[in-house]
Simulated assay, not measured.
Amino acid sequence: MPGRRPSAQAPGFPARAAPGAGSLSELDAVVPACRACPRLVEWREEAARVKRRAFRDWEYWARPVPGFGPADAPLAIVGLAPAAHGGNRTGRIFTGDPSGDALYAALFEIGLASQPRATHRDDGMALHGVRITAAVHCAPPANRPTTAERDTCRPWLARELELLGPTLRAIVVLGGFAWQALMPVLAGAGWRPPRPRPAFGHGTEALVSDPRGGRDVCLIGGYHPSRRNMFTRTLTPAMLHDVVRRGAEIAELPVRP
Protein backbone atom coordinates (compact mmCIF):
# COMPACT_ATOMS: atom_id res chain seq x y z
CA MET A 1 0.00 0.00 0.00
CA PRO A 2 1.53 3.37 -0.99
CA GLY A 3 2.59 5.49 1.96
CA ARG A 4 2.46 2.63 4.43
CA ARG A 5 4.96 3.02 7.28
CA PRO A 6 7.73 0.39 7.36
CA SER A 7 7.41 -2.35 9.96
CA ALA A 8 9.95 -2.23 12.80
CA GLN A 9 10.07 -6.04 12.58
CA ALA A 10 11.42 -6.11 9.03
CA PRO A 11 15.17 -6.45 8.31
CA GLY A 12 14.82 -3.52 5.89
CA PHE A 13 13.31 -1.21 8.50
CA PRO A 14 16.51 0.79 9.17
CA ALA A 15 17.16 1.30 5.46
CA ARG A 16 13.64 2.64 4.93
CA ALA A 17 13.18 4.56 8.18
CA ALA A 18 16.57 6.20 8.71
CA PRO A 19 16.52 8.52 5.66
CA GLY A 20 13.16 9.90 6.79
CA ALA A 21 14.58 11.32 10.01
CA GLY A 22 14.87 15.05 9.43
CA SER A 23 16.85 15.76 12.59
CA LEU A 24 18.89 13.93 15.19
CA SER A 25 16.04 14.19 17.68
CA GLU A 26 13.77 12.44 15.18
CA LEU A 27 16.42 9.78 14.55
CA ASP A 28 16.91 9.21 18.28
CA ALA A 29 13.17 8.73 18.64
CA VAL A 30 12.81 6.13 15.89
CA VAL A 31 15.97 4.04 16.54
CA PRO A 32 14.57 2.43 19.73
CA ALA A 33 11.56 1.07 17.81
CA CYS A 34 13.72 -1.16 15.61
CA ARG A 35 13.29 -4.96 15.85
CA ALA A 36 14.99 -5.83 12.57
CA CYS A 37 17.55 -8.36 13.90
CA PRO A 38 15.83 -11.31 15.65
CA ARG A 39 18.96 -12.58 17.42
CA LEU A 40 19.71 -9.16 18.89
CA VAL A 41 16.11 -8.61 19.94
CA GLU A 42 16.09 -11.98 21.72
CA TRP A 43 19.42 -11.30 23.46
CA ARG A 44 18.69 -7.77 24.65
CA GLU A 45 15.30 -8.84 26.04
CA GLU A 46 16.73 -11.97 27.66
CA ALA A 47 19.37 -9.83 29.43
CA ALA A 48 16.55 -7.65 30.73
CA ARG A 49 14.67 -10.66 32.09
CA VAL A 50 17.60 -12.46 33.68
CA LYS A 51 19.48 -9.33 34.89
CA ARG A 52 22.60 -9.24 36.99
CA ARG A 53 22.20 -9.49 40.72
CA ALA A 54 23.54 -5.97 41.17
CA PHE A 55 20.79 -4.64 38.88
CA ARG A 56 17.85 -6.81 39.91
CA ASP A 57 15.79 -3.72 40.86
CA TRP A 58 16.34 -2.04 37.50
CA GLU A 59 13.78 -1.88 34.73
CA TYR A 60 16.05 -2.45 31.73
CA TRP A 61 15.76 -0.33 28.60
CA ALA A 62 16.08 -3.49 26.44
CA ARG A 63 15.76 -1.65 23.13
CA PRO A 64 18.19 -0.23 20.58
CA VAL A 65 20.22 2.57 22.16
CA PRO A 66 20.38 5.86 20.21
CA GLY A 67 23.32 8.23 20.08
CA PHE A 68 23.90 10.83 22.77
CA GLY A 69 25.14 14.38 22.50
CA PRO A 70 24.39 17.69 20.77
CA ALA A 71 23.15 17.85 17.20
CA ASP A 72 25.85 20.35 16.18
CA ALA A 73 28.82 18.42 17.57
CA PRO A 74 32.07 18.80 15.61
CA LEU A 75 33.41 15.60 17.24
CA ALA A 76 31.82 12.15 17.13
CA ILE A 77 32.91 9.05 19.03
CA VAL A 78 31.86 5.71 17.55
CA GLY A 79 32.01 2.47 19.52
CA LEU A 80 31.00 -1.12 18.88
CA ALA A 81 27.57 -1.64 20.49
CA PRO A 82 25.78 -1.19 23.83
CA ALA A 83 26.69 -3.56 26.66
CA ALA A 84 23.98 -6.00 27.76
CA HIS A 85 24.01 -4.65 31.32
CA GLY A 86 25.26 -1.16 30.42
CA GLY A 87 23.52 0.76 27.66
CA ASN A 88 20.93 -1.99 27.25
CA ARG A 89 20.03 -1.43 30.92
CA THR A 90 20.29 2.34 31.17
CA GLY A 91 19.15 3.38 27.68
CA ARG A 92 22.16 5.60 27.07
CA ILE A 93 25.23 4.65 25.10
CA PHE A 94 28.38 3.87 27.14
CA THR A 95 26.44 4.40 30.38
CA GLY A 96 26.51 2.08 33.38
CA ASP A 97 29.48 -0.13 32.47
CA PRO A 98 33.28 -0.04 32.86
CA SER A 99 33.86 1.06 29.26
CA GLY A 100 31.63 4.06 29.81
CA ASP A 101 33.31 4.85 33.11
CA ALA A 102 36.65 5.10 31.30
CA LEU A 103 35.30 7.11 28.36
CA TYR A 104 33.30 9.66 30.34
CA ALA A 105 36.21 10.15 32.74
CA ALA A 106 38.42 11.01 29.76
CA LEU A 107 35.83 13.41 28.35
CA PHE A 108 35.36 15.09 31.72
CA GLU A 109 39.10 15.51 32.21
CA ILE A 110 39.42 17.59 29.04
CA GLY A 111 36.16 19.48 29.59
CA LEU A 112 33.82 17.78 27.12
CA ALA A 113 31.53 16.16 29.71
CA SER A 114 29.77 17.81 32.63
CA GLN A 115 30.66 15.04 35.10
CA PRO A 116 33.17 12.18 35.28
CA ARG A 117 30.71 9.26 35.47
CA ALA A 118 27.50 8.32 33.70
CA THR A 119 25.10 6.06 35.59
CA HIS A 120 21.61 6.49 34.08
CA ARG A 121 19.67 8.61 31.57
CA ASP A 122 18.59 11.19 34.15
CA ASP A 123 21.93 11.64 35.93
CA GLY A 124 22.48 15.16 34.60
CA MET A 125 25.26 14.25 32.20
CA ALA A 126 25.75 16.74 29.38
CA LEU A 127 28.28 16.59 26.56
CA HIS A 128 29.96 19.65 25.07
CA GLY A 129 30.73 19.51 21.36
CA VAL A 130 30.83 15.71 21.18
CA ARG A 131 28.26 13.07 20.24
CA ILE A 132 28.69 9.40 21.14
CA THR A 133 27.17 6.59 19.12
CA ALA A 134 27.83 3.02 17.97
CA ALA A 135 28.12 0.91 14.83
CA VAL A 136 25.38 -1.42 16.14
CA HIS A 137 22.60 -0.09 18.35
CA CYS A 138 21.55 -3.32 20.11
CA ALA A 139 23.57 -5.28 22.66
CA PRO A 140 24.96 -8.39 20.91
CA PRO A 141 25.75 -11.78 22.51
CA ALA A 142 29.40 -11.94 23.61
CA ASN A 143 29.79 -8.37 22.26
CA ARG A 144 30.00 -9.83 18.74
CA PRO A 145 27.45 -8.66 16.17
CA THR A 146 27.30 -10.64 12.96
CA THR A 147 28.22 -8.99 9.69
CA ALA A 148 24.56 -9.19 8.65
CA GLU A 149 23.50 -7.39 11.86
CA ARG A 150 26.17 -4.77 11.32
CA ASP A 151 25.00 -4.17 7.77
CA THR A 152 21.32 -4.07 8.75
CA CYS A 153 22.09 -1.42 11.38
CA ARG A 154 24.31 0.63 9.06
CA PRO A 155 21.64 3.11 7.84
CA TRP A 156 21.11 4.48 11.36
CA LEU A 157 24.76 5.49 11.70
CA ALA A 158 24.94 6.73 8.11
CA ARG A 159 21.99 9.04 8.70
CA GLU A 160 23.37 10.17 12.07
CA LEU A 161 26.68 11.19 10.51
CA GLU A 162 24.90 12.78 7.57
CA LEU A 163 22.88 14.95 9.97
CA LEU A 164 26.05 15.84 11.85
CA GLY A 165 27.80 16.63 8.56
CA PRO A 166 27.54 20.43 8.56
CA THR A 167 29.58 20.69 11.78
CA LEU A 168 31.49 17.38 11.93
CA ARG A 169 35.29 17.65 11.78
CA ALA A 170 36.62 14.53 13.53
CA ILE A 171 35.55 11.03 14.53
CA VAL A 172 37.27 8.99 17.22
CA VAL A 173 36.68 5.33 16.36
CA LEU A 174 36.94 2.93 19.29
CA GLY A 175 37.98 -0.56 18.22
CA GLY A 176 38.71 -2.43 15.01
CA PHE A 177 35.10 -3.56 14.50
CA ALA A 178 33.83 0.01 14.54
CA TRP A 179 36.69 1.10 12.26
CA GLN A 180 35.80 -1.52 9.64
CA ALA A 181 32.08 -0.84 9.99
CA LEU A 182 32.53 2.91 9.59
CA MET A 183 34.09 2.96 6.11
CA PRO A 184 30.96 1.95 4.15
CA VAL A 185 28.86 4.04 6.55
CA LEU A 186 30.83 7.14 5.61
CA ALA A 187 30.37 6.37 1.94
CA GLY A 188 26.63 6.03 2.56
CA ALA A 189 26.61 9.39 4.32
CA GLY A 190 28.25 11.13 1.36
CA TRP A 191 31.95 11.13 2.27
CA ARG A 192 34.74 9.52 0.26
CA PRO A 193 36.85 7.16 2.43
CA PRO A 194 40.57 6.96 1.61
CA ARG A 195 41.89 4.33 -0.80
CA PRO A 196 43.46 2.00 0.04
CA ARG A 197 41.45 1.61 3.20
CA PRO A 198 43.72 2.40 6.18
CA ALA A 199 44.34 -0.37 8.70
CA PHE A 200 43.05 0.18 12.22
CA GLY A 201 45.50 1.06 14.96
CA HIS A 202 45.58 3.08 18.14
CA GLY A 203 46.40 6.62 17.10
CA THR A 204 45.94 5.96 13.38
CA GLU A 205 44.62 8.99 11.52
CA ALA A 206 42.93 9.07 8.12
CA LEU A 207 41.31 11.93 6.26
CA VAL A 208 37.90 11.35 4.71
CA SER A 209 37.12 13.79 1.92
CA ASP A 210 33.80 15.48 1.28
CA PRO A 211 33.20 15.76 -2.49
CA ARG A 212 30.24 18.04 -1.81
CA GLY A 213 32.66 20.82 -0.96
CA GLY A 214 32.19 20.80 2.81
CA ARG A 215 34.71 20.06 5.53
CA ASP A 216 36.84 16.95 5.36
CA VAL A 217 36.64 14.68 8.39
CA CYS A 218 39.59 13.17 10.24
CA LEU A 219 39.26 9.65 11.64
CA ILE A 220 41.31 8.81 14.73
CA GLY A 221 41.57 5.17 15.74
CA GLY A 222 41.64 4.17 19.39
CA TYR A 223 41.52 0.88 21.24
CA HIS A 224 38.13 0.20 22.75
CA PRO A 225 38.00 0.88 26.53
CA SER A 226 36.71 -2.61 27.27
CA ARG A 227 37.27 -4.14 30.68
CA ARG A 228 39.74 -6.60 29.11
CA ASN A 229 41.75 -3.92 27.29
CA MET A 230 41.97 -1.79 30.41
CA PHE A 231 42.83 -4.73 32.68
CA THR A 232 45.62 -5.99 30.39
CA ARG A 233 46.90 -2.42 29.90
CA THR A 234 46.43 -2.78 26.15
CA LEU A 235 44.73 0.55 26.69
CA THR A 236 45.59 2.83 29.59
CA PRO A 237 43.60 5.86 30.77
CA ALA A 238 46.40 8.08 29.42
CA MET A 239 46.18 6.44 25.97
CA LEU A 240 42.42 6.92 25.89
CA HIS A 241 42.74 10.53 26.97
CA ASP A 242 45.30 11.14 24.22
CA VAL A 243 43.05 10.00 21.35
CA VAL A 244 40.03 11.83 22.75
CA ARG A 245 42.09 14.99 23.18
CA ARG A 246 43.46 14.61 19.65
CA GLY A 247 39.92 14.36 18.29
CA ALA A 248 38.91 17.46 20.23
CA GLU A 249 41.90 19.41 18.92
CA ILE A 250 41.14 18.51 15.30
CA ALA A 251 37.49 19.39 15.91
CA GLU A 252 38.70 22.77 17.24
CA LEU A 253 36.97 22.30 20.57
CA PRO A 254 38.31 24.16 23.62
CA VAL A 255 39.84 21.66 26.03
CA ARG A 256 41.37 21.82 29.47
CA PRO A 257 45.18 21.74 29.47
Rank of each mutant, 00 (worst) to 15 (best):
Leu127Trp: 14
Ser114Arg: 01
Ile132Phe: 11
Ala106Lys: 06
Ser99Gly: 15
Asp122Gln: 12
Pro98Lys: 07
Ile132His: 04
Arg117Lys: 11
Ala118Thr: 07
Gly111Cys: 04
Arg121Tyr: 02
Leu107His: 04
Ile110Trp: 04
Arg117Gln: 14
Met125Asn: 10
Ala113Gln: 03
Leu107Ser: 06
Ala105Cys: 02
Arg121Ile: 05
Thr133Pro: 08
Pro98Met: 05
Val130Ala: 11
Ser114Gly: 05
Met125Val: 14
His128Ile: 04
Thr133Gln: 03
Leu107Cys: 04
Ala113Cys: 02
Leu127Met: 12
Tyr104Ile: 13
His120Thr: 09
Ser114Asn: 05
Asp122Gly: 09
Thr119Asn: 08
Val130Asp: 11
Asp122Lys: 14
Ala126Tyr: 06
Leu103Val: 08
Phe108Cys: 06
Ala135Asn: 06
Leu112Phe: 01
Tyr104Val: 12
Arg131Ser: 14
Ile132Asp: 09
Asp101Lys: 08
Ala106Gly: 04
Pro98Leu: 07
Pro116His: 06
Gly124Asn: 11
Asp123Met: 02
Asp122Arg: 14
Met125Leu: 15
Ile132Gly: 10
Ala134Val: 13
His128Asp: 14
Arg117Ala: 09
Ala106Gln: 02
Ser99Arg: 11
Ala102Val: 00
Thr119Gly: 04
Ala135Arg: 05
Ala126Ser: 12
Thr133Trp: 08
Leu107Phe: 06
Gly100Asn: 09
